[in-house]
């Protein structure tokens, strides 16, 4: 991944990857001499790394505190690996105060939501003292806006309507035939949710963990990573003959 992690724990997706000029333009195998050798260290951070990508944020915003204000609140559901970040919105510009007050309970923050997808073979790299340090990434989450306030309002509106509709129909109120059936309690008749529905149910039911957002910890993090103990020694699983026999 990128080496441009500055004083921020979470790595922004660096969309400015080298744009390919011509797909067919490629250096030949021979004309690829070794220019420099850089030692590579495989290290482990003090905690698992998650990469949060902001697909809706242009790269040129950078770390401008106005365009990219610090996160005010973080919620995380570990079982579903679900992130929710609250980012305060600048209510001075491009903000419809009236509408926010009338319709959306004067919302003043943007919620970003993303599901962490487990990755394998993804690393974060850092160059410190001419050495490359690689840290394994546990999950990558793409943070997309989540308009919770719209859904909440719609939800409550619907509930109101449902409540309002019932008494307005007196016929339904009068004639009440109660049928009772005894449901067998065996497991088979319970509605079984599978796949995505189950995942959503699990996510909805899990209480979020409130986490604190701390900025400016990069130096401290870097120090903890480049220590000798956090490095993992790579040991070959088999010996030379073993490898050769497989390779042949």
């Amino acid at each position: 991944m990128s080496e441009q992690i500055e004083n921020q724990l979470f790595v922004t997706e660096d969309s400015g990857d080298v744009v390919m000029e011509d797909a067919n333009l490629q250096e030949s195998e021979e004309g690829d001499p070794i220019v420099r050798e850089i030692p590579i260290n495989l290290t482990n951070g003090p905690f698992p790394l998650h990469i949060l990508q902001y697909p809706n944020k242009p790269k040129k915003n950078g770390n401008d505190p106005v365009l990219h204000p610090p996160v005010s609140q973080v919620r995380y559901k570990s079982k579903s690996s679900l992130w929710e970040l609250d980012v305060p919105v600048n209510t001075e510009i491009f903000y419809d105060k009236n509408r926010a007050e009338d319709e959306w309970d004067s919302v003043a923050q943007q919620t970003l939501k993303g599901v962490g997808v487990q990755t394998e073979g993804q690393y974060v790299g850092m160059v410190v003292d001419e050495e490359v340090y690689l840290l394994p990434v546990q999950a990558v989450a793409q943070m997309r806006p989540f308009f919770k306030y719209i859904d909440t309002v719609a939800q409550s509106k619907r509930e109101n309507e449902a409540r309002g509709a019932q008494p307005s129909n007196p016929a339904a109120r009068r004639a009440q035939v109660v049928t009772m059936s005894v449901k067998s309690s065996s497991e088979a008749n319970q509605p079984r949710l599978g796949g995505a529905l189950l995942a959503h149910k699990v996510a909805d039911e899990e209480p979020p963990q409130d986490l604190e957002w701390i900025e400016g910890t990069f130096n401290q993090f870097r120090e903890s990573v480049i220590t000798e103990d956090s490095r993992t020694m790579m040991l070959p699983l088999g010996d030379e003959n073993d490898y050769l026999s497989k390779a042949m």
């Binding site: 679900l82 599901v115 796949g195 995505a196 529905l197 995942a199 959503h200 996510a203």
Partner: peptide, 17 residues
Amino acid sequence: IEAIATTVIAHLTVEAL
């Protein structure tokens, strides 16, 4: 959710969120 996860383009069944 069910329609998007399993019915549409059924050969790519989504099991997670």
